[in-house]
Amino acid sequence: MILIIDLSYRARSLSHDEFVCPVAHIVHRAGREWRETHFSAMTSDDLKDAEGIILCGTAIKDNLFATKVQEFSWLQTIPVPVLGICAGMQLLCRVFGGTIRPGCEIGMTTVRVDTPDPLLCKSPAFPAYELHSFTCDPPRGWVTIAVSDECIQAIRHPEKPLYGVMFHPEVRNDWVVEQFLSLCTGVNGTCPRSAGERKKSE
């Protein structure tokens, strides 16, 4: 079961429709069992059966989650893969000792992969949708996987499958969520082919 966590200002808010439902739709379409919960309603039972956890984004004006970092200390010992999207990446960053600072991107940008990783396959660069008012300085030892001109776009824990992405993969980059789901089961996901790869095979 994939646990999808709503980080927005209130349970079942309008932001839930915007930031949780599209992610849940991708997980559902991938044929994975899933459950969602708001962070304020989480219990240890919610974590028990989770094979993977997705921390969803929030509205650009919604930074309530950043005042609740202590409620997410369980992330330090969680044994399953985690994908933090935007607000979720900021939360992972803070829980593990990194910092956040003002830095805004709204709209499409180019994400460049610096360090090959199963999450972002071998795509050297791809367009991605951004909606954030803060950026991350990652925790010590974490690996920077991808960057944009503005900021760090994807990070990974040095040993565990804990990932943060600043862009919103639910917009035009479903494959990143699908790839994360494959990491939750150890099955290889399908990566989009690069233009060069497509040309070769055609």
């Binding site: 429709d17 915007e18 599209p22 650009i60 709204i106 709209g107 499409m108």
Partner: peptide, 23 residues
Amino acid sequence: GTRIQRICRDLELWCFNPLWYTD
């Protein structure tokens, strides 16, 4: 979506798109 988000950011307003990428 991007343009309305930017206007709301500049005016310090919330922006909600409850049908965004809906099924």
